[in-house]
Amino acid sequence: VTTYKLVINGKTLKGETTTKAVDAETAEKAFKQYANDNGVDGVWTYDDATKTFTVTEMV
């Protein structure tokens, strides 16, 4: 189990959260659900070296 981080660069919501998951795919599903629940829709990137997902909403 690995800890993954999500950085949110939203128009109205900004911040970070973490989740523990067995792999990046599982973490991504959890983060996308979290973003969807919070009304964040944007471009996703993932950095495997730092285990960090970033979602950026276009203005």
Rank of each mutant, 00 (worst) to 15 (best):
Y34F: 09
L6A: 02
E25H: 13
F31N: 00
N36D: 06
T26V: 07
Y4A: 01
V40P: 02
G10T: 15
V22Y: 10
K20I: 15
K51D: 03
D37S: 11
V43S: 09
G39A: 08
E16Q: 15
A49S: 13
D48A: 10
I8F: 07
V55Q: 01
Y34S: 02
K14Y: 08
V55G: 00
D47V: 05
V55C: 06
F53E: 00
N36F: 14
V40G: 02
T12N: 14
W44A: 01
K51C: 06
E16T: 15
A30M: 13
F53M: 02
A27Y: 00
A30Q: 10
T3S: 06
T12Q: 08
T26K: 06
T45A: 09
F31A: 02
A30S: 08
N9L: 13
T52M: 04
A21W: 03
K20N: 15
T26P: 02
V7A: 04
L6D: 00
K11P: 09
G10R: 04
V55M: 04
M58S: 11
G10K: 05
E16M: 13
V7T: 05
F31P: 00
G39N: 12
V40A: 03
T18R: 06
D47H: 06
T18L: 08
D47A: 04
V59L: 14
E28F: 15
T3A: 06
M58V: 13
V22H: 09
E57Q: 12
D41M: 11
A27R: 00
D23A: 04
A24V: 11
K29V: 07
K51F: 13
V1I: 09
V7Q: 08
E57H: 06
V43C: 09
T45P: 00
E28S: 06
T56G: 04
D23E: 04
N9Q: 11
Y46W: 03
K32T: 04
F53R: 00
K11D: 06
K32A: 05
G39D: 07
T2P: 08
Y46P: 00
A21G: 04
T45K: 06
D41S: 15
D48K: 08
G10C: 12
T52K: 03
T52S: 04
T2D: 10
E28Y: 15
D37K: 09
T45R: 06
L13Y: 10
E57A: 09
G10V: 14
L13K: 11
F31Q: 00
N38G: 04
G15Q: 14
V40R: 02
N38W: 12
A24H: 12
V40L: 10
K5Q: 05
V22K: 07
T19M: 14
Y46Q: 01
V7Y: 09
Q33A: 11
T3I: 13
K11G: 09
G10W: 05
